[in-house]
């Protein structure tokens, strides 16, 4: 059932955020430490567990993948509510600090990605790309049939 997928996602998110809060308190920080990351790891573990027992139904998959597909629209909504006026009127100190750290960090990404070497994305990645891109063909479909979905996404 679809709702089980949504509920699974919700439960993982709640537990993850709760643990992130606890971690923040334990470290004496006024912030959530890695709550979303913990939730993601829980969801990955849940998927592996369900898959092994043959309980990963199409409904459950759809319930989660629907929200993965809503990710970009949500990011667009997020962009539309940023305080862009403040960002643009902050003056030179703001621009210099932001651009400086950005350039340095982009450089560091370039450096770090050299370490790992490169691989061509596999079929599973194509499926993932289609789902997160919000492509209906990719949702709850097997990786083998996502070639058309990939073209669209």
């Amino acid at each position: 059932m679809i709702v089980f997928g949504v509920a699974l996602l919700a439960t993982c998110t709640l537990i993850g955020v709760y643990l992130g809060d606890l971690l923040g308190i334990a470290l004496g920080v006024k912030a959530n430490v890695g709550g979303v990351g913990i939730a993601m790891i829980l969801l990955i573990a849940a998927r592996v567990w369900l898959d092994r027992r043959g309980r990963l139904s199409k409904g459950v998959k759809f319930g989660v993948e629907f929200w993965a597909g809503m990710y970009i629209p949500i990011v667009v909504a997020m962009a539309a509510q940023q305080n862009v006026v403040a960002a643009l009127t902050g003056g030179p100190i703001v621009i210099i600090a932001a651009v400086g750290s950005l350039v340095l960090c982009f450089g560091a990404v370039a450096l770090l990605s050299r370490f790992g070497g490169r691989e061509a994305p596999g079929a599973g990645d194509a499926h993932a790309g289609a789902v997160v891109a919000g492509d209906a063909d990719g949702i709850a479909a097997e990786p083998a049939v996502t070639h058309s979905a990939r073209r669209e996404g």
Binding site: L9, A10, C12, T13, G16, V17, G35, V36, A39, M40, I41, L43, I44, R47, V48, K61, V64, E65, F66, W67, A68, M70, Y71, P73, I74, V75, V76, A77, M78, A79, A80, Q81, G116, G122, G124, D125, H127, A128, V131, V132
Partner: peptide, 30 residues
């Protein structure tokens, strides 16, 4: 409604959902 849709709650919910597509081996290696 844009505030609710793009707010932290739904943003985090959707980000967690994307983890469903993560390649475990790849993530562990990195």
């Amino acid at each position: 409604g844009i505030g609710l849709m793009g707010g932290a709650m739904l943003r985090d919910f959707a980000i967690v959902a994307t983890a469903f597509e993560v390649d475990v081996i790849e993530a562990r290696r990195a």
